[in-house]
Amino acid sequence: MDDLAGFLRTRRSRVAPAAVGIPTDGRRRVEGLRREEVAHLSGVSVDYYVRLEQGRATQPSEQVLDALARVLGLDETEHEHLHRLARQRRRRTKAPGGRVRPELLRVLGLVADAPALLVDHRLDALAGNRLAGLLFGRPMPGLNIARHLFLEEAENGLYADGEQCTLDVVGHLRLAAGRHPDDPRLASLIGELAMGSERFRRLWARADVRARTHGRKVYRHPLVGLLELHQENFELPGEPGMELLVLSAAPGTPTEDGLRLLASLDPPTHP
């Protein structure tokens, strides 16, 4: 399925006609807006919009994309994603590599009181500090957060806020797929998740995109109990697609005590 075409179809199905001033009655059988309604409201011909949704129209202008984003009610992240999908046909970019500079590893080691890890656009953990390994119960190299969430820990309950985590992870992978459509390792990961998880398949079909930079993360560690952490995502200049994730505890909370207890455990030795 053409990514731009599929994204337009899923967004169109979610716009309530009343939200754009279109009256409805009980005879309406289309979920969301009709193609001709989107075309009319966006100021493009019906034929051109139909070709967009069929993947037959190339290089839509910036003005057309902005008009579609307005009619479809896209937020900033979705708007940027729409433009990125349209540009895929004009140029392809090489997916960033996964090499971690020694200086980054040194910085990672300086984070002593909070789990911290370096991840790439595929959500592969490239490196982590000692607390990160203790939190996830395994060494960081070889861990993929999406695979861990959907396939490895789905039944064990490490992710106390698993429903929200799955939304965030799928939304992140959708953005990554838009940025790196020619990345075979990312495509292979998405295929593996789709084969192994019915929930992933359902969420992927929604074509939601999410860019999360911070927020609450709750883990239920088998040895130290509930850990209510705050995650900050730091983009690394000069390292495309790579982020530093730091999971901190509020001072004076049971989670801060839990991290101290976690730090006293022996490190994991096997994935």
Rank of each mutant, 00 (worst) to 15 (best):
R179A: 13
A250Y: 04
G157Y: 09
P240W: 01
L173K: 06
V246K: 02
E239Q: 07
H221R: 09
H221N: 12
R216P: 14
D161Y: 05
E153V: 11
E163W: 12
R199D: 11
E155C: 02
K217D: 05
A154T: 03
A177W: 01
G258K: 02
F150E: 00
V218H: 06
P181D: 07
R185H: 14
P237A: 11
S188P: 12
E198T: 10
F200I: 03
V209P: 11
V218P: 01
A177M: 09
R202P: 07
E239K: 03
L173H: 09
D208E: 15
L173G: 12
E235S: 13
E243V: 15
Q231R: 14
H221V: 01
Q164F: 05
F150Y: 07
D182P: 15
L175F: 04
G191M: 04
A177L: 10
E198V: 14
R174L: 12
G252M: 03
Q231I: 10
A211Y: 11
L226G: 06
L244E: 02
W204C: 00
F234L: 13
G258I: 00
V170E: 08
R201T: 13
L247F: 09
R206T: 15
E235H: 09
S188C: 13
S188K: 11
P254T: 09
V170C: 05
G252C: 01
R199E: 15
L151E: 09
T255N: 02
A176S: 14
G238P: 02
L223M: 10
M242R: 05
R199P: 15
D183C: 09
L226N: 04
T166E: 13
L151W: 00
E239I: 00
F150N: 00
V224Q: 04
L167Q: 14
G191A: 10
V209Y: 01
R174S: 10
A154D: 09
R216C: 03
G196I: 15
P237W: 02
D257I: 02
Q231H: 04
R201F: 10
E198W: 07
P237T: 00
D183Q: 09
T166C: 12
A187E: 12
R147K: 11
S197A: 08
S188A: 15
G157F: 08
L186G: 06
R201L: 08
T253P: 07
P184S: 12
V169L: 11
R220P: 07
